[in-house]
Design a protein around this nucleic acid. Sequence first.
DNA 1: AGCGCTTCTGCAAGCGCTTTCATAGTTATA
DNA 2: TATAACTATGAAAGCGCTTGCAGAAGCGCT
Lengths: 339, 339
Amino acid sequence: MINRNSPATIDDVARHAGVSISTVSRVLNRNVPVSEEVVAKVEEAMRALRYTPRAAARNLATSRTNTLGLLLAEIVGDFFSPLLSGIESVAAQHGYDLLISTAGRRGPQNQLPGPFHKHNADGLLIFAGSLSDDGVRDTHSLGVPMVLLHQTPPDGLPVPCVTIENKAATRAIVEHLIVSHKRRRIVFLTGEPNNEDGSWREMGYREALTHHNIPIEPALIAPGHFDRHIAQTSIEQLLRDGIEFDGVFAGDDEAAVGVYAALRNAHLKIPDDVSVVGFDDQSLARVLQPALTTVHVPIDQVGIEATRRLMQLIQNEPTEVLTLLPTTLVIRASCGCPE
Amino acid sequence: MINRNSPATIDDVARHAGVSISTVSRVLNRNVPVSEEVVAKVEEAMRALRYTPRAAARNLATSRTNTLGLLLAEIVGDFFSPLLSGIESVAAQHGYDLLISTAGRRGPQNQLPGPFHKHNADGLLIFAGSLSDDGVRDTHSLGVPMVLLHQTPPDGLPVPCVTIENKAATRAIVEHLIVSHKRRRIVFLTGEPNNEDGSWREMGYREALTHHNIPIEPALIAPGHFDRHIAQTSIEQLLRDGIEFDGVFAGDDEAAVGVYAALRNAHLKIPDDVSVVGFDDQSLARVLQPALTTVHVPIDQVGIEATRRLMQLIQNEPTEVLTLLPTTLVIRASCGCPE
DNA sequence: AGCGCTTCTGCAAGCGCTTTCATAGTTATA
DNA sequence: TATAACTATGAAAGCGCTTGCAGAAGCGCT
């Protein structure tokens, strides 16, 4: 075997097999008939030379990258693995690779990060909080196929968006507290200011209260930011301020952990003294004692659906602009129901 | 603005700025002096045409991809986010993008998956369970820079490996059970058969027992596979078989969740009746009641160190073959210590 | 003015592949 | 048997960028 320094190219294979490079290319792509005999020869040559085509060259020639870009705010939490695994599976199914990048702690960017500059990925998946409205507008105007996750496009731009049903589920879980457990003073822990999921959940909360003629009390609305420490601090503050409450909608499960801690430190019993509910149905919801009543979010489906939409976009097929995935109530014990 | 269908190329920029494409390239790369005046003209042109260079063309010309490949068995669990976030941060620092692929449920592969075929990434990070020993040998012989995570290379191949200290930490936590809590019949839940972390932990367990003259009882060693359901089933089986024990090393925190569930169902008190300890210090360790005594694993550091090693390899700098990251005992309440 | 330097810029040759077009070889049809 | 109609293959022109080489200025010297 001729072990040259640099890896084999299509030329080497062609020479070894005694055919032209066009033929090798055709064996590689199988888009045009090639005789059995030649295929065998070429494949043998490829094996002998340990040939693998170089992606860059194909990309340049075809002006396609077979790569999807995933842009995230940051890589954290229970959320992330199922989302990514959903995305990866669909991308792989379609023969696409996945390039990942984060906006990091700098917050939403106006510019796409380097890896995703135009034509370095065939399409983009943009997760909430990673690209500003201006950035979305800009990228869209460049004609890059993209879909937004957990974030709606600005100005009604026709950019597909995949997210989950927040409002009705929140309303349902809060009404469960009101109707089944006779709670009247229910704390609402907010998401971060610009978080759309959080805003919708707050609307659901308000609807539930209003529908049952319970006045909305600003003192019961405190920051949670989907963070256990912030949530814990908020609850401790309410307790210290002597504000009474008999229920808590934590914003999400992660925040519920903080609520549990604050309540435990104050020697308050869940659910006897206070009902607590979360949102997301993360794997820790089952682990908490008492088990957390929450809303199940099909986060892997978000990844799957978003990637499907993106594939359609790339293939110029029509696709829905808004995909709202259903969420479902998961009653466990923290609301007061028997386990 | 001339809005042609296809995006601007370096030629368009050169024409617009009245210079040659070489000059544009040099402005792009800043590797050769270019006069201020020309730089300004070119940058203006790039802005006007919304030019962004095409990665494929650069890659082809330079025969570098500026991309790192990350190969995983599957994307699951608490493990994954910090690992990836560590990797991503170092890669980004060095100007590298991250391409992700999973071996999926098919288990370790002999072949690299498509995206990573030679020269489609400048280097590879291979996580335990994603590439077989043959695959590692093969890829290494191709001269692809690579580092292994949580997996040692076969045949003492000089492939850098980054993993964590398992044995001493396991021995320490088991000895803690023996010495501080007078446990004598300690269950060991294993990892999956070929998991190296699991094997080292088992050695640490055996050492601890032997050192304290406690006979090793095969009946106390059962499968845990770092999975809460398998762990729960194993504990339930032991209980059903009437095998007595006063302590459990669960293998990892995830398995500890299953142990908690089994014990709770059997109305056994942790830590009064049985001490339970885990490994990893996942975020749920603090959430369990009682809080889980475990071993802290710096998983983000594994990602960071591995990526650093890979960068050194790519730059032909010398690098360590084995990096063993330290783990530390985290005493909480599940062993019997006061919280 | 002429010389050698140094700086900056342009020319042109690739990088490794795909793909159009033309051609040689085969088979079917009249 | 001549002709049309395919079929499998090859030649060659790109895809958009980098970079070695050479040439053109500009500079300080002699």
